[in-house]
Design a protein around this nucleic acid. Sequence first.
DNA 1: GTGAAAGCGCTAACAA
DNA 2: TTGTTAGCGCTTTCAC
Lengths: 346, 346
Amino acid sequence: MVTVRDVARESGVSISTVSRALAEPERVAPETRDRVVAVANRLGYRPNRAASGLRAGRTGALGLVVPDLENPYFASVTKGVQARARQTGHAVFVVDAGEDPALETELVTGLRSQTDGLVLCSPRAAEADLEAARDAPVVLVNLRHDGVPSVSSDDAHGVVLAVEHLRALGHRRVAYVGGPDRSWSDARRRAGLDAARERYPDVETVTVGSFRPRVEGGRAAADLVVASGATAVLAYNDLVALGLVARLRERGVDVPRDLSVVGFDDTFVATLATPPLTTVRTDLARLGARAVDRLVAVLGTRRPSGSDGDPAAAPTASPDDVLPVELVVRDSTTLAPTSELSVPPR
Amino acid sequence: MVTVRDVARESGVSISTVSRALAEPERVAPETRDRVVAVANRLGYRPNRAASGLRAGRTGALGLVVPDLENPYFASVTKGVQARARQTGHAVFVVDAGEDPALETELVTGLRSQTDGLVLCSPRAAEADLEAARDAPVVLVNLRHDGVPSVSSDDAHGVVLAVEHLRALGHRRVAYVGGPDRSWSDARRRAGLDAARERYPDVETVTVGSFRPRVEGGRAAADLVVASGATAVLAYNDLVALGLVARLRERGVDVPRDLSVVGFDDTFVATLATPPLTTVRTDLARLGARAVDRLVAVLGTRRPSGSDGDPAAAPTASPDDVLPVELVVRDSTTLAPTSELSVPPR
DNA sequence: GTGAAAGCGCTAACAA
DNA sequence: TTGTTAGCGCTTTCAC
């Protein structure tokens, strides 16, 4: 390994000059600097992050915890997180908690000691995680909690948009297929349902179960939805919607003719379905990017190590931490079967 | 931040005793150890990885570079990598190169200085990457190169299996939709095509383009495939297959009646398609896990920092570094339209 | 403008 | 069994 000492010896200066030439070029005589830089390049010198981090009291690394990387939702968020982190000069440890709260907490504990801060995406063990993270800088995605900075999308509004859309198509009985029990996202969607019902009292809603946020979950829910008598169904996410569609087809229930289906998130799978899914869209990469921005902001206010900083100086939640959503209408939703609207007026 | 000194002071021992009590409990008097451990817990002491890493000459971190996290293939490999790495006591920096060779190389350079070793998955800039990684321990996934350890799946054999399957269904003209130009995986598939043609001279093959390994790529290829007169098509991967199916449907070409489609990888999207895809399956998590095993093995032979170790001692490629594949037959393949087999004998 | 030297937190000789 | 000490590679005062 090439160190500052090697570069120093080779270019006939002291190690401090080498360090300066690389970090603060303007504080070094041009010719000295050029010589040092040339030698450094020739030797292939790369500063040791562990060493400089040790000195500076930070690691330059962030941690990201997600429930399941194979879920396209989290894949997209992860992509956004690492892209933005790169821009801010951080590397990202990514860990997949496998939807397991206990493992998640353990991972958070482990990451804490080797990162400057954590992004916890849709944590399944929020309380325990935050306890494990103690005073480590943390940003939550898809979860709000006391004074912990968080970023989320306006899922409740998304549900309202979806119900609005379905109602306009003549649907008066809408089913919701719920996601993970302890999931904040699920709670937000249910809150959206409540809001929609309040605004549109002529729309009945029925919710079924809590299902795994994957294709299997949708398959499992399909029969319940049919039995519910709903003419339209809003799924926890796109994967669940796909499972619904698949199982419904097997049962001979046509989507959207017999039943309209709305997904959530607009992950890339939404367009893969037959028919392509009407879904509630969020910019997931942006969600991840914003989480990093928030985290870096927190890091900036904390003096590296030691002094816990003035708590009062903690940045207040920016008004921007709820990202907008939009309804993307594709082919999985259409007029309600028995609606008088089925035959266009005139 | 709580350090060894704090724990030492609080428990009335020296810092080395603290270090020992935590790392080599058997070398410390039971009562001393218990006291130290108790204090450490009470104070919430967590060893600073940067410091111990600096001392030990390693970081405890691995780096993983993938072309696109949103591609379910890489999501699965990533999941496998980080899971296995956790078991070996490593954390994983994950970076998405966005299918950009230049960025990829830059990322490799950056990761090198903060990791003990790298896993390069389907590198788009192999030569440049390896140069950038210089003497850093590297394991390649889906790419072979000189003496660099690598892990891959037996894609060529997968193609043979697919062709065999199609031939048995009466197909005599099979199209292949190629992936990224500089992709080794694509080359392996083409090699499989050659092998299949040699073994089954009665099967004609026609290859079209090189397309992006995503849904759009498949859409773009669909019309060429139809024009080629093939009765079956083998896609670079499942996403491309899905794009093909989608575009074919739009054109009124029925899959599998008019055209049989075979995917590759058996990512979860294969079962989402309508019809579910016949595809060549690999255990992707295992692929990632094996890559980590290989890397850790290399790490074990290298003495931390300094001494470059005896090159002759480098572990030779284990015979296991090509993972088996299997053909998963679903509903996207059926008898060739004009085949005499269309009507079963007798 | 440059160098000497003091550590960051930890572990591993080496002493006692 | 426990303590003292010397660094790992780097940055950063503080002198010169």
